[in-house]
Design a protein around this nucleic acid. Sequence first.
DNA 1: AAGCGTCTGTTGTTTTTACAACGAAAGGTT
DNA 2: AACCTTTCGTTGTAAAAACAACAGACGCTT
Lengths: 220, 220
Amino acid sequence: MKKYLNVLKKAELFSGIRESDIDALISCLSARPVHYEKARYVYLSGDGFEGMGIVLSGMLQIIKEDYYGNRLIIAEVGEGQLFGETFACADIKALPVSVYSATESDVLFIDYRKLISPCSAACSFHNRLIYNMLRIVAMKNIILNEKIEVMSKRSTRDKLIAYLSSEAQKAKSSRFSIPFNRQELADYLSVDRSAMSAELGRMRDEGLLKFEKNRFELLL
Amino acid sequence: MKKYLNVLKKAELFSGIRESDIDALISCLSARPVHYEKARYVYLSGDGFEGMGIVLSGMLQIIKEDYYGNRLIIAEVGEGQLFGETFACADIKALPVSVYSATESDVLFIDYRKLISPCSAACSFHNRLIYNMLRIVAMKNIILNEKIEVMSKRSTRDKLIAYLSSEAQKAKSSRFSIPFNRQELADYLSVDRSAMSAELGRMRDEGLLKFEKNRFELLL
DNA sequence: AAGCGTCTGTTGTTTTTACAACGAAAGGTT
DNA sequence: AACCTTTCGTTGTAAAAACAACAGACGCTT
């Protein structure tokens, strides 16, 4: 476990907890590490859900299959990140998604019930864990809300304006860069890439904005 | 406070807590009731956020103003329901939305810090509160994810199929009713009502489904 | 340097959606 | 019964998006 300490100490779930306390915490949470080979499933959609985990090494993918049978990658979970916490918190018994180990990976499974019930006094960091857990779930909530707000615009142009405005607001500047390339931005906005590119071009021509690669500047 | 006990005992936040314990709980959480007249703002967008609350009577609206200045009702919060919990959990200082008292209302403000830090032993229901809180936030998360999954479909038809399929799945039957009228469904899917109505008509003609009012049956 | 893959912008065509306008049905009120 | 309101479906037209196909720019590898 020692070798993953530098991953765990950066994990959001353990934020504000002293590195020296992490070891005690792990046994307090009955955390157990599991190794996965590349291209193995951690959970299959429909499976009984066994508990949340934190990625120690490698990368997991959260995968949803739609009614056509298309495999859609909903999220990627890297080192130090949690997965399954929403289902643990919401007490969901059967997973609506699959979890897939895209690379060889190590996962630390954590007992949710132990995490949320403060243990026998000894373990003072439990409060902090609960605080972190709530913050993580709530932050995800906020991010989802932002996405819905942008996606709910009817036209590609309005989606772009909504997205870019909110990025500008976050950056507190009309000049900012975005964490997406064109295809990823189109996926995020749920529009066609080429049509979006064309719309960006028109908006540039109309003097609404400037851009180069992933750097944007809003005018007006 | 007594007169609101039957509201509080049904509130999700207090689920699993004995009615007789609620009074003690309220003082333990430093909860304070506030009355609002109709058409008053509880919070204005941009305001410093003072804390979450639970609606004792009346109805609040969560309102977002977009860059055109359009007022958009994001959610309505009725008796027994929480508001602001996401921002409390995520430790957001400045509200990105306004909270508006659509009717005359009473609100019970709750100290989030006290809610998440188990108090001096005496108060055994604190664990349950934390558990409830996490479940509430996580459930919201799941609902948002469902909405995004549906909204991310490109065409009206695919949105309808995605939404109706998920409703059928929830109902565990191909016959089910939905909680929306046509306009509300169109808003939820973020499409035009009349175009959606026309698409539903075509799908019926093609033998994909049957419907009458808000009762649907999926065929095939 | 040549070859290859990826990313991006552009254009023309086809398909889909939004929009506006209207009529019919159902429910409530006076 | 007459009236009003709300809801829903239908239609035609205008606007927008998806789609397909391609070309230029860039970076990487050999």
